[in-house]
């Protein structure tokens, strides 16, 4: 069931030898009054450099927990997790990844520009450099002209784009996103999906993406990890057969439909097993 995926598809990165993320028999167990909760149970997963991997599953399947474990926001109870060959803590301290939360988490007292500058300032770069990078990143998410606005003056979709610009500012090799578009309306979501896809096309950073939308997972990913709750585990890993170059029209093709169907079946399997 937890078949480790030892042969990831050929990566697009310069150093394909070392996986971006390697998870070995990782478990996260929360103690509770009656029975301990297995948020993650013996999960194995390899993510190669340059891959776009989506974690999908119903709530409680541990997809967010897995992401948080990789980001060192949550400790593992047993097993091993390596990020670019380092422990999650080392990777975090080496500022090896960017993390986009479900909510934009922008600081209301900072302007849009100053929000994007925040991680760069923490790294101790000089102000002019911070500002130049932040302006460039805002341009990449099409927010030029909004530098001096405050977060509350922006729509939800724009706020989340600011948070993506903020996560990309220090050029992390690994980008982790926890249902970043979950709270947005479908039209905004489609547009941001398209922009994110183009961004990945251009820069080929490794992306780990948590979602509960099948369409989003299929449209964006090179590989889809289907998860199931109680205990949180990986059910199935589906390789995408779609071309790397993608556009929204692709969603009406039979190929897309077939993939979406496969993911849906995988999710249904987990549900069946759960009830048995």
């Amino acid at each position: 069931m937890n078949a480790p995926d030892r042969q990831p598809r050929p990566a697009h990165s310069s150093s394909p030898a070392q996986p971006a993320v390697a998870v070995r028999r990782a478990s996260v167990i929360y103690p509770s009054a009656d029975a301990p909760v297995h948020a993650l149970s013996e999960v194995d997963l390899d993510i190669a450099q340059g891959e776009f991997v989506s974690l999908i599953g119903p709530s409680g399947c541990g997809k967010t927990t897995l992401l948080r474990v990789i980001a060192d926001l949550e400790p593992i109870s047993s097993g091993q997790v390596l990020v670019n060959g380092m422990t999650p803590q080392q990777a975090r301290q080496a500022r090896a990844y960017g993390y986009v939360f479900q909510a934009p988490a922008l600081f209301p007292w900072r302007t849009v520009l100053a929000n994007v500058m925040l991680p760069l300032q923490i790294q101790g770069r000089n102000k002019a450099e911070c500002e130049a990078i932040a302006r460039e990143q805002l341009g990449r998410v099409s927010l030029t002209g909004f530098e001096n606005k405050y977060p509350w003056q922006l729509s939800g979709g724009m706020q989340q784009r600011v948070s993506i610009a903020r996560a990309l500012g220090f050029e992390p090799k690994l980008l982790m996103m926890d249902e970043p578009f979950g709270a947005l309306d479908e039209i905004t979501r489609d547009r941001l999906n398209e922009q994110l896809q183009q961004l990945w096309q251009r820069e080929r950073r490794t992306v780990v993406f948590v979602t509960h939308s099948i369409a989003e997972a299929v449209y964006l990913s090179t590989r889809i990890v289907v998860m199931s709750p109680r205990p949180g585990r990986i059910l199935k890993v589906i390789e995408s057969t779609l071309p790397d170059e993608r556009h929204l029209g692709l969603r009406d093709t039979p190929e897309f439909m077939a993939l979406a169907h496969e993911v849906r079946e995988g999710l249904a399997d987990g549900h069946g097993a759960d009830e048995a």
Partner: peptide
């Protein structure tokens, strides 16, 4: 979520104080 954000940036306690806690 805000403290976790600072955590992912590996911000020191001093930085978290000046950049997050104090303005908040």
């Amino acid at each position: 979520i805000e403290t976790e954000l600072m955590h992912t940036y590996a911000a020191s306690r001093t930085q978290a104080f000046w950049m997050l806690r104090l303005p908040a």
